[in-house]
Every structure is written in structure tokens, then in C-alpha cells.
């Protein structure tokens, strides 16, 4: 349980975590390689779990951590494995491989 040392420290910490979460959320959409995208979504889940701790909601933090990073990470990774998108290096640039990156 993080002691309330200093309110602005908590705000600063919250700012860092929110920034991390938002950046990794954007990364999920931008990254070509699907594996890194799933990893980024894992990071988002864990970041949100930390935010939940900051908001004094330990139950929810544990659930988000376990279910978000654990279960959905595993399910998505398994899905990738079975979809044949499990492809480490992004050399092959066929649209199928790149996972149809949004061409905004």
C-alpha cells in the first residue's frame, strides 16, 4: 500500500503511468508486427492495473493484471499462433503479414 508521502509525487507518478499507457495504446495500432501489438496491449493492461492501484481499487487491479495481461495475452497470442501471423521479423511486407496497418 503506497504511503501518501506527497500528493504531487502521486500525481507525478500517475502522469507517468498514464503517459506510458497512452503511448503503448497508440503503439498497438501502429506497430506492423502483430506480436509486438499484442505485447503492447499487455503493457496497456498492466499500466491500467497500476492506475487502479493508485485509485485505491486493489481488487480491480488484481483482476485487471491477471485477466488483462495473463488471460487475454495468452488467448491473443494463441490466436496469433493459430492464425499463422506469428512472425518475428517484419521482413515480409505483404499486406497479409503487415496486418493491414491503418493507412491513414
Amino acid at each position: 500500500m503506497i504511503p501518501d508521502v506527497d500528493l504531487d509525487l502521486q500525481t507525478l507518478f500517475a502522469l507517468v503511468m498514464v503517459a506510458l499507457v497512452l503511448v503503448s495504446a497508440v503503439l498497438v495500432l501502429i506497430l506492423d508486427n502483430m506480436i509486438s501489438a499484442v505485447a503492447a496491449s499487455g503493457v496497456v493492461s498492466l499500466g491500467v492495473a497500476v492506475l487502479f492501484v493508485l485509485l485505491h481499487a486493489p481488487d480491480v487491479a488484481m483482476t485487471e493484471a491477471v485477466v488483462g495481461a495473463g488471460l487475454s495475452g495468452v488467448v491473443l497470442a494463441l490466436g496469433l499462433r493459430r492464425l499463422g501471423l506469428w512472425q518475428l521479423d517484419a521482413t515480409d511486407t505483404s499486406p497479409e503479414r503487415r496486418g493491414g496497418k491503418p493507412d491513414a
Binding site: 495504446a25 498497438v28 495500432l29 502483430m34 501489438a37 499484442v38 496491449s41 496497456v44 493492461s45 488483462g68 487475454s72 491473443l76 490466436g79 496469433l80 492464425l83 501471423l85 496486418g99 493491414g100 496497418k101 491503418p102 493507412d103 491513414a104
Partner: peptide, 15 residues
């Protein structure tokens, strides 16, 4: 809304 690949849409849904 913007992605053309279903899997990426599922990820966006997670977010």
C-alpha cells in the same frame, strides 16, 4: 474504426 485488419480491431476493442 480505422483498421482494416480484424485482429487489430479486436486489440482496439481491448483498449
Amino acid at each position: 474504426v480505422m483498421s482494416n485488419h480484424l485482429f487489430r480491431m479486436v486489440l482496439a476493442l481491448v483498449i
